[in-house]
Design a protein around this nucleic acid. Structure first.
Lengths: 144, 144
DNA sequence: TAAATTTTGCAACATTGTTGCAAAATTACA
DNA sequence: TGTAATTTTGCAACAATGTTGCAAAATTTA
C-alpha cells in the first residue's frame, strides 16, 4: 500500500519518466486512478475531485497520458470513454494491452483482468489482426 | 441480392414481425444497413441519407431497433456508437451476439465476422460472464 | 373511411468535447 | 537561488452530440 507521501513520490517519478512536468492536476488524476483500482470515465474525475480542476484540463491531461502510454482506453457500447492505467510493459511506442476488461453489471465498475489472457482468434482468410479488445460483462467477484 | 422491391418487402415483414409501424424512415434506415454490409454510426445516416430525415428521428429509430433486437451496438474506444443488424437468432428478449467484430484500420469500416467464433475465456474465480464482446482491429480482406 | 394509435419534426435544452490565448506554474540553467 | 524559457492551466467561446415535450402528420385498426 504505502502512505500518501510515497504514492506522491511514485507518481512524480512516473511523470518524470515520461518527460512530463509534475503538476498538481496530473498528480491528483493519477492518484484517483490508483485509488479506484479500475477504469474511470470522464465524469468520474469531476465527481471525485469535486471540480477542483477545469474540464478542459482533464481532457488534455488524459490525452497526454494516452500519448505517453500511461493509460489506455477501454471499449464501450455507449458514448462514454473509459480509461485505465497501463501496466509497466506499456510505453509511448508500444502497448501490451492484451488483457481482458471486465464490466460488472451490478456495481457498474470496469476493471482490468491482467492475468486473464486473450485466446488466439482464428480470423477468416485475408484478415490481419493488429489488436484485439475483449470486454466481458457479468457479475464481478465482489458483487457475487 | 434481390431487387429494390423485394428488399422493401423484406424490410416491411421484418418491421411487422417486431410489431412496428412500417414507416419511410425506418425502411430507409434498414436499407442503409443492408447496403452497407457493416456497422454504421450515427453520422453515417445523416451523410448517407442526405438529411432527408431529422436527427431526432434517427436517434429514436435506432433506439427502437435496439429495443426490438433488430440491431446491436458494437463497442468502440471513442465516443461514437456503432450499430449493426442482428442475425436471425436475436430477439427482443435474447441476444446471441457471440461473433467477432472487425475494424479495418485502412478503410475505417467495421464489419461482423459471423462465422468467427469467440473462444472460451477463462475468468478468475468469482467472476461470472454474461456477455463477451470482441473487437479486432487490423487490415481487412478488401484492403489487404 | 373514420377513429385510435403511433411516429415524426420542431424547438429548446443539456451534455460532452475542442480551440485560441493570456496568466500561472514548472523546469532549466546560469 | 533567482531568472528566463518552457510548459501547463483556466477562461471564454464555440462545435458536436444527445434528450425531452408537444403538436402535426402518418400509419394502423376495425
Amino acid at each position: 500500500m504505502g502512505n500518501k507521501q510515497q504514492i506522491t513520490e511514485r507518481i512524480a517519478a512516473l511523470l518524470k519518466d515520461s518527460k512530463l512536468s509534475v503538476t498538481e492536476t496530473r498528480t491528483k488524476i493519477l492518484e484517483l486512478f490508483m485509488k479506484s483500482n479500475g477504469a474511470l470515465e470522464h465524469s468520474d474525475f469531476e465527481k471525485l475531485a469535486g471540480k477542483s480542476f477545469d474540464r478542459v484540463t482533464v481532457y488534455r491531461t488524459l490525452q497526454t497520458f494516452l500519448d505517453k502510454g500511461i493509460i489506455h482506453k477501454i471499449p464501450t457500447t455507449d458514448t462514454s470513454v473509459r480509461y485505465a492505467v497501463c501496466k509497466s510493459e506499456c510505453t509511448e511506442h508500444h502497448h501490451h494491452d492484451h488483457h481482458v476488461h471486465f464490466k460488472c453489471e451490478a456495481c457498474g465498475h470496469t476493471i482490468c483482468l491482467d492475468e486473464t489472457n486473450i485466446p488466439e482468434i482464428q480470423l477468416p482468410k485475408g484478415f490481419a489482426a493488429n489488436n484485439v479488445e475483449v470486454v466481458v460483462s457479468g457479475v464481478c467477484k465482489s458483487c457475487k
